[in-house]
Structure formats: C-alpha cells, structure tokens
C-alpha cells in the first residue's frame, strides 16, 4: 500500500484525476497526437512538425520568445495595475510605494521594465531571422505584413508605458515623441500645408494623442488606456492571426526542391 507505484495508480484511478486528464498517456502515436490537439494551449501546434522547426539554428526560437515575453508582461502588468492610479497626483507616489512598501514591488516593476526592453529586442531579431531565411516569400507575404504591424504595436506598447511612472524620463520622452505628431503634414499644427485645413494646436494630431495641448492628466490617462487595454487587445487579435497564418501557410518555412 505504501509503495509509490501503488499511490500513483490510486491517484490515476481517482475520479478527480480522471475528470481532468481523461485518459492515461501511453506514448503511442495516438496519445502523442492527443496530447497536442486535446490541449487548448498546445493545439495551436500541428501534431507533427518538420525537423527544422525543432532545431534552434533555424528559427532561434525568436517568435516564441517574443510571445513568451508578452505573456510575462501581461502578467506583471496586471499585477502592477493593482497598485497604480493613472492620475498626475498619484502615479509617481504609486511607483515610490512599489519601491518601498509593496512586497516584491521592486522586482515586479523590474521584471516589467526589463521584460519590455527584452521584447523589443527579440521582436527585431525575429524580423531579421524571417528576412534572412526568405520566409516572407510566397505563400507567407501577408503574414509578414501582420508581423510588421505587430512590430510597430510592440514599439507603441513600450512607448505608451514610458509615461506611466510620471517621472522626468517618461514625461520628456513623451513630450519629444508627441511633438513629432505636431509636425505631421496637413494634420499637425507645425506640419507643412496644415494652414489649409485650419489646424491649430487645439485640433491637431498631437492634441488627439495627448487629450490636450500639453502632457498632463488627460495624456496620462490616454497613455494608460492605450498601454493597458487598447493596444494589448489589438496585439492579441493580430497575434492570433499571425500564429494561425503560420500554420495555414504551411508551418515554419522550408527549402523547396
């Protein structure tokens, strides 16, 4: 009775165990396939992949690492949201609280900050890999385009997150960045030809980005909503399309004879 194998057998026969795993894994062809398509998280994968997809030297795992970095950022980001108010009066002291009051607050913020830098780096390397293997070529042209948008969204996610601590670094980075919006041709008040559309500092692109004519409370709220809700939502939808199309376009690219 105290034999470990006996305990294992008894656990496996338990109705709770059986309700979760349904059947035993026996390392047969059928069970290996079942492990993939019977699992909601793994079923994005095909049941079989070509050998090159498993070899690191071809893909470097960069797309997957990008996605994993995104997951880390979502988890740490959600936890950070519990401690944060997107208002000028509270934002900065909330970050200070993370540093000095919240248990593990420092490492939580560090993980989010360095994870974000890391994701920007690996997504660029992923693009470089896809280019170098010519994987954007037919039939994967469309998915390359989706990938370019996801790259831009990654920059935007990081950029909108910059303002949230409401410190000098974020404030002036966003000031520099959104001032570019004012230079948009036709639609920015400093841009060429904008006078033909009667564009002023109070109705141009920069105003729309900031919710005002300067970086203040509205800008912080907008950055926060873009950062925590709007851009992640669009990104997740496009990631689904991106992963789906990887499979529909024939999986990881391979040489043709």
């Amino acid at each position: 009775m105290n034999n470990p194998t006996d305990i294992k057998e008894r656990v496996k026969k338990n109705i709770i165990w059986k309700s979760i795993f349904r059947r035993d894994y026996r390392n047969t062809v059928r069970d290996r396939a079942q492990a993939i398509f019977g699992n909601v998280f793994l079923h994005l994968h095909p049941v079989q992949v070509r050998e090159g997809a498993v070899k690191l030297r071809f893909t470097w795992g960069m797309g997957g690492i990008t996605f994993f970095a995104f997951i880390i950022l979502v988890i740490t980001g959600v936890v950070l949201m519990f401690y944060y108010h997107p208002s000028v009066s509270q934002a900065y002291s909330d970050i200070k609280d993370l540093e000095f009051q919240v248990p593990f607050g420092v490492i939580l913020r560090n993980l989010h900050r360095w994870g974000a830098h890391f994701m920007v780096i690996v997504v660029m390397i992923h693009m470089f890999r896809v280019f170098m293997t010519g994987s954007y070529k037919a039939p994967r042209q469309f998915n390359w385009g989706v990938g370019v948008i996801l790259l831009v969204l990654t920059f935007m996610l990081s950029f909108t997150g910059y303002l949230t601590p409401w410190d000098q670094l974020g404030f002036w980075a966003i000031t520099v960045g959104t001032n570019m919006g004012a230079a948009t041709p036709l639609l920015g008040y400093q841009g060429p030809f904008s006078e033909f559309l009667h564009i002023t500092p109070f109705n141009d692109v920069r105003f729309a980005l900031l919710g005002g004519s300067r970086v203040a409370d509205n800008a912080l709220l907008r950055a926060y909503i873009w950062h925590c809700v709007a851009i992640p939502l669009v990104s997740v939808i496009l990631m689904f399309v991106h992963f789906w199309r990887v499979r529909k376009d024939g999986g990881i690219s391979k040489p043709h004879k």
């Binding site: 498993v54 070899k55 071809f58």
Partner: peptide, 19 residues
C-alpha cells in the same frame, strides 16, 4: 541540397513542446 531540404517530420509532443 541545402540545410533542411531533406527533412522529415517529428512529433510535436514531445520534441517541440520540450524545447
């Protein structure tokens, strides 16, 4: 043939899931 040209298929579970 270039690297990967004559490759076969492997099961996703476990080689890919493991990596």
């Amino acid at each position: 043939p270039v690297d990967g040209e004559n490759e076969g298929l492997v099961d996703t579970f476990k080689p890919l899931v493991r990596i």
